[in-house]
């Protein structure tokens, strides 16, 4: 049954470019949606399982864009290498931030705020650091189709890279969820002291979750920079942090299927609203999007995860019969 669902998801992901008629603009939007969804899925590790309200996604995403872009622009380094280097850089920053935070026992709103501050701090640093970024956009050399350099004129190239990234992120996260590490992270979320007394090295596991998530968030940033063809410090975007946490919570903390499904749907709605209403009254789409989120949380305080899980359980059973 599982293999059928996986196959179905894979076929659906593969078919999307044709469903949008290979239109470059729509391809750009669906790639964007999948990139943001990937961050939401990775965020489950630290937020959904580890229970830490991390708002650093914008920092790691931005770091991925800047580091990958910088290497492509200045040294002609392949984007693929850039993704790995920027992922490692983000994991390194996550370590530098996470180690003292978890050691000091920063939690809840204090952890949330300090991780959000990272987004703003990195943005300022790269605005001032003109050797690497600075206030001007830096353009990545154009290539009609250069898969080795990871650059192409058509968005479908980036779409498939992103779809593969989302699928692997989902597999990694679901694997961790079923492992000892996943169980340990959830026990930390449920009660840190009790977990610690059962031998769980709370700091180490939180740090591990933070580093894997930040690596993946950076990879999404690198793909983004290569797709749009430039990078700029505004890619350190606190909106991405908030969007990530919000979608993960609305999708259901710690649920496997809820967050990606809800992210894809709501991000699609958001983009639709932006296209249709964004020009009518500036910001109207964000207001409406906000109202949708509030309504969902009012009626389903645990998010849509439980509902989606039970649907997922029922559906295959009825098919089988």
């Amino acid at each position: 049954m599982k293999t059928y669902s996986a196959l179905g998801a894979a076929i659906a992901l593969a078919a999307v470019p044709f469903l949008v008629g290979l239109n470059e603009y729509y391809l750009f939007l669906v790639t964007l949606i999948l990139l943001y969804t990937t961050i939401v899925v990775a965020w489950q590790l630290i937020g959904g399982y580890g229970g830490q309200l991390d708002l650093g996604a914008g920092a790691y995403h931005g770091l991925g864009a800047v580091v990958t872009g910088f290497l492509m622009v200045n040294y002609g380094v392949s984007g693929w290498v850039g993704l790995l280097v920027s992922g490692a850089a983000a994991a390194g920053v996550a370590f530098l931030i996470g180690y003292p935070s978890f050691r000091l026992g920063l939690k809840e709103v204090w952890y949330a705020l300090s991780s959000l501050a990272l987004v703003l701090i990195l943005q300022k640093i790269f605005l001032l650091w003109t050797d690497v970024a600075g206030p001007l956009e830096r353009y990545i050399p154009y290539a009609e189709f250069d898969p080795v350099f990871m650059r192409a004129g058509t968005k479908i190239f980036y779409y498939y890279i992103t779809a593969a990234l989302l699928a692997s992120t989902f597999l990694i996260v679901s694997r961790i969820r079923r492992s000892k590490t996943g169980l340990y992270l959830i026990s930390i979320r449920e009660n840190e002291e009790a977990a610690e007394m059962l031998g769980v090295d709370v700091r180490r596991y939180k740090l591990q979750a933070l580093m894997i998530y930040s690596f993946i968030a950076a990879v999404t940033g690198g793909i983004y920079a290569s797709m749009v063809g430039f990078y700029h410090p505004t890619l350190f975007d606190s909106w991405i942090s908030i969007q990530t946490a919000t979608l993960a919570i609305v999708g259901g903390l710690g649920h496997l299927l809820g967050p990606p499904i809800v992210s894809i749907i709501l991000l699609t709605v958001q983009e639709y609203l932006r296209i249709t209403l964004g020009a009518v009254i500036i910001g109207l789409h964000q207001v409406i999007f906000g109202i949708i989120l509030v309504v969902i949380i009012m009626f389903k305080p645990d998010g849509l995860g439980p509902l989606i899980d039970s649907l997922a359980r029922r559906f295959p059973a009825s098919v089988r019969r």
Partner: peptide, 24 residues
């Protein structure tokens, strides 16, 4: 030493006010 290190040395403990993992 930290509690998890104490646990590794063979100490287990229950709490006066129970500390359950409600979501598990």
């Amino acid at each position: 030493l930290q509690p998890h290190q104490i646990a590794a040395r063979g100490v287990a403990r229950t709490f006066q006010i129970v500390k359950p993992f409600f979501g598990m």
